[in-house]
Amino acid sequence: MEIHKYEKAWLVGALVLIFFFIGTIAYVSAVVGVDMVDDSGGALDVDEVSEDERFADPRVEQVGEDEYEVYMIAQQFIFRPGTHDTVDVPENSEVTFYVTSIDVIHGFQLVGTNVNTMVIPGQVAEITVEFDEPGEHGIICNEYCGDAHADMEGLLVVHPEDEWEEMQGGDG
C-alpha cells in the first residue's frame, strides 16, 4: 500500500496530536490532581436515602480544620440544601459534596465552573472542591428532570473569613 509522503507526515502529526491530548489529560489527572467523579460515594438504594445518616438530615458539616462535607439531595425540582436555604462555606476551604437523587436523574453544577456532576438515583456522587475566594455561585440542575426543570436552582455562598467567624459565633 503506497501512502503519499505528505499523507505520511500528516499521519505522524495526527498521532502527535492524539498523544499530546492524552498526555495533557493524564497530567491534569495525575499531577494537578483533578479526579473524576467515580464510585467512591458508593451505591445507595433510593428507598433507603432517608435512613442513611448522611442524607436523613441534608446539611453542611465541618470535618476538619478547613474541611467541610455537604450532604445534598436533588429531587424534582429542588436541591436540599441549596434551593430554600443557601449552602454556606468559608473561603480557603476544601469541600466534599455528596449528592444523591430520590427520583429521576439530575445534574449538579456551580454555574460557569468545572464543579459539575451527574446525580443518578441509586448512586452517590462525591466531588471535592477548593474554594479559595469568597463569592456567590449559582447551583443549577443541568439535566432535564421534568416539567419544572428550568426552575431547579440554588445558591452556594463562600463567605470571607471574618464574616464566617461571626456567623459561627452567632450560631453559638
Binding site: 445534574g107 453544577q109 454555574v111 460557569g112 465552573t113 456567590e136 455561585h137 449559582g138 443549577i140 440542575c141 443541568n142 439535566e143 432535564y144 426543570h149 428550568a150 436552582e153 440554588g154 445558591l155
Partner: peptide, 19 residues
Amino acid sequence: LLGIPRRTSEPQYEQFDYE
C-alpha cells in the same frame, strides 16, 4: 462556557446572574 445549561426551557435564574 458561561454556564448556560442545555435542555432547559428558560435558562434564566432568580438567585444569580451569568458573568
